[in-house]
Design a protein around this nucleic acid. Structure first.
Lengths: 117, 117
DNA sequence: GCACTATGTAACCAGAGGCTTAATTAAAGG
DNA sequence: CCTTTAATTAAGCCTCTGGTTACATAGTGC
């Protein structure tokens, strides 16, 4: 899995391949048919998806059947998790306040005076 | 929002900026300090994040305070949603079966004969 | 106005990545 | 065997993108 998950999903064609595979396993040939690019191009996209852990290929005679690996999306889910839990409004405001003071302090040592005057 | 969300998150620096902002608003200068790249580089990353709807900048004197827009992540959440609900095993197998027949048909018109002979 | 600070834009360069055509590997079947 | 089909790999081209330095813009405070 030497390909970054986010990078793998950055390409629209690859995202569509993932969407396509959500309906069930599909052969490389059929996948290629659905896109306006050549087979080699699709082949490389499939490789990237494989190396990102998003799909799996099983050899079936001379064709490869590609299957979606839903588990491959887990890291993305986990990454998003952090942002789903919003901090309390009061905390947010505190953080903002802190930040503003900090930024002002750098160039305005007596900023407080102006603010309270 | 003329920048693709997935593309915006494909860059590791930009992802780190988003993570950083999860703790609260931060000025452009402070953001720049935390990365081993030059300020102009960070400035461009911030622009991409802005155009992807992931962050917002409010002018505060001569500095810009950047804030995370959690709502900007919604499209990603929605996209992932599709893959959270797995289809029934029986359906999956049917899909595979259908697919294999289809792939074979393309090059082997009398495949049936061979199969039934 | 002038100096200084914070940020962003411009111009340019180098590497990454996606597309194509051509060549290669490998299974099926006469 | 030889041909056909399925798929991948190789080689080359070209664009996109991220990085840098240099410059521009715009607040702040004397």
């Amino acid at each position: 899995m030497r390909v970054d998950l986010f990078a793998a999903l950055a390409d629209p064609v690859r995202r569509e391949v993932v969407e396509l595979l959500a309906d069930g396993p599909v052969t490389a040939g059929v996948i290629a048919e659905r896109f306006p690019v050549t087979r080699p191009a699709v082949s490389r996209h499939l490789r990237v998806l494989r190396e990102a852990g998003l799909v799996e290929a099983q050899v079936r005679g001379q064709q490869r059947v590609y299957t979606l690996r839903r588990a491959g999306l887990a890291p993305l889910e986990e990454w998003l998790e952090r942002f789903r839990a919003p901090v309390l409004p009061a905390d947010r405001l505190d953080a903002l306040d802190t930040e503003l003071r900090r930024g002002r302090r750098a160039r305005d040592t007596e900023g407080e005076r102006r603010g309270t005057a």
